[in-house]
Simulated scan of single mutants.
Amino acid sequence: MNANLLFLLNVLSTWYMVGLIWMVQIVHYKMFDRVGEDVFAKYATDHARLITPIVAIPMLIEIATAVGLLMTRPTGLSLTWAAVGLVLLLIIWISTAALQVPAHGKLASGFQTDVHNTLVATNWIRTVAWSIRGVLVGWALWTLLPSSG
């Protein structure tokens, strides 16, 4: 695949996820405790089903393009840049699999304050890592843009 197209898809998917993770962290997860215990299990199950394609498709694009950028990059982007970006994604994916997915699984049986608090607290790992990735790809985009002067 063309290195510039890989980079563009990586930038777009990363910034999509940056916006999404901040909305989830600051708004969505914070409001789980307001749903009501009598309907929370259904809410949590529906949440998992409905959010999966919204999250999974861009995450898969992001990781596929990040791996691709290890092999081919636009001129001016280093292998170190690509490797750091991939390490951040690995942190995000490991956190998702080890912490957030199990928490959502537990919440599917009903609201539990301790699990909810753990979900909100551990989701900061992904929020910070995606934010750093956003800065990383934003910096790379800035350095690749032609000078206007």
Rank of each mutant, 00 (worst) to 15 (best):
H28G: 00
L69E: 08
L79K: 04
L90A: 03
M23N: 02
Q100A: 15
L70N: 03
Q25F: 04
G85S: 09
V67C: 06
L99D: 02
P53H: 11
I57L: 14
I57A: 13
H104V: 10
M23A: 09
N2T: 14
M31I: 03
V115L: 00
F7D: 11
H47E: 11
V101C: 08
I63T: 14
Q25W: 01
P53F: 13
L6K: 07
A108S: 15
W15F: 11
L77M: 15
F40V: 09
V24Q: 02
S95M: 10
K106T: 11
I92E: 11
V18R: 03
M31W: 06
N4Q: 15
L9G: 09
S13Q: 12
I54Y: 09
H47G: 08
A83N: 06
V35Y: 01
T80G: 10
A41M: 02
A103D: 07
H104F: 06
L6A: 03
V84D: 01
R73L: 15
R34W: 07
F40L: 05
F32C: 00
L99E: 03
I63W: 04
M59A: 11
I63H: 02
L89C: 12
D38P: 01
G76R: 10
V101Q: 05
I91P: 04
T75V: 15
T75L: 11
A48K: 10
V24A: 05
L107D: 09
L88V: 07
A3P: 09
L20Y: 04
A41R: 07
V11F: 13
G19Q: 03
L89Q: 10
A103S: 10
L86H: 03
G76Y: 09
L5M: 13
A83C: 07
N2Y: 09
A48D: 05
W22F: 05
I26S: 00
I21G: 04
T96N: 03
N4P: 08
E62W: 15
V11C: 10
K106F: 03
